[in-house]
Design a protein around this nucleic acid. Structure first.
Lengths: 185, 185
DNA sequence: TCCCATCGTTCGTCTTGACGAACAGTCTGC
DNA sequence: GCAGACTGTTCGTCAAGACGAACGATGGGA
């Protein structure tokens, strides 16, 4: 659900931040967006509850996607060495999932590395509606995809499939490793 | 910039689609979101220019992120076999980039596979402000990151760094392959 | 120093979105 | 057949957002 904090404060901060980044004055931005600068002034001060059209016009004028204005940013350089990072192990299915990058608000794609060993498949219940999974095989071979139409993949192969239906993932060789990008829509 | 079509039409469609998916009646959703059902009715019919607070309340009541309402969805199952897919080759820097999944509107993370060979580094000019790059090494070793603080990575290593400053990527071994997720913010 | 430009703010006015009541239509069960 | 609960619609009213003018503040340039 991306953000919890009051959206108006987030918008206020986003507007000022993006305007600074673009190097535009308040007056100039208001002119480009075709809105009154008084309106923009109030928005940046946190008062006011803009309409979609107003916010849209500002997004266009700033050259920034709409959602950038309602959800804030994050990071810097970071390395997670192989084997490090928060990982979830499962004895049952012989796999380990490591979360590399969680979903910053508004981005909605989590990045995992899955280390899988042959054995019982890792069957997943459907995730939240709209979820999409992307897999890229690094090493080994896997059988993955929707439970009713799994696909066999080798190194370098890429697969995308809906994550909101039952799906499966099982290693066919030892030392199998795949990159999983989970898209939350 | 995600979407071009009139935002109000997109919102109208999104609202109805998400409400259907949630199995809620118009009246019920209006009650849960704490808005008048007349307001919701007008929004779904395409007339009306909702305020951020109104749209926010609807997003919360529907259990979907805000941006889901202003940008639409896409896909199904798809496989790109190793070596297939639209790829960009560079003789100069001995690498090939394959686009696996472009950025559906509002998602903002593109997924690539980079096949790199030792040689002159692949230096990149800064991308659009706010861009972030994620790399996961599948095979071989690479030296990558911001040009002023590159990091050496081996198989399974994960690196995230700003893409809006000059950065580099060079293979240290032959047959190097890395997964690159480019986050457009 | 004066002038002019631009900065971002604060006013009063007017348009417009949000509200709630009343509406017609459908389905269930007594 | 009719009461009841429900669907989603269309009204009139009122508060709130968007507008434009005027404001004081700041920074050059002649």
């Amino acid at each position: 659900m991306s953000n919890t904090g009051a959206p108006l404060d987030v918008i206020a901060a986003s507007l000022r931040r993006e305007r600074d980044r673009a190097g535009l004055s308040l007056s100039e931005l208001a002119k480009r967006a075709g809105i009154a600068k008084s309106t923009l002034s109030q928005l940046e001060s946190g008062s006011g509850n803009p309409s979609v059209e107003t916010l849209w016009a500002l997004g266009v004028a700033l050259g920034v996607p709409f959602s950038r204005l309602v959800d804030p940013p994050t990071p810097r350089v970071r390395v997670i060495r192989a084997g490090e990072g928060p990982s979830i192990h499962s004895e049952r299915a012989h796999y380990a999932a490591t979360l590399l990058a969680s979903c910053p608000p508004g981005v909605r794609r989590d990045i995992y590395v899955l280390d899988v060993e042959p054995g019982s498949p890792r069957d997943s219940e459907p995730h939240m509606a709209g979820t999409v999974e992307h897999m890229i095989v690094s090493r080994g071979r896997v059988l993955a995809g929707p439970s009713d139409e799994p696909v066999e993949l080798g190194p370098g192969d890429y697969l995308v499939f809906p994550g909101d239906v039952p799906h499966t993932c099982s290693a066919l060789t030892t030392g199998t490793s795949v990159v999983l990008v989970m898209e939350h829509v």
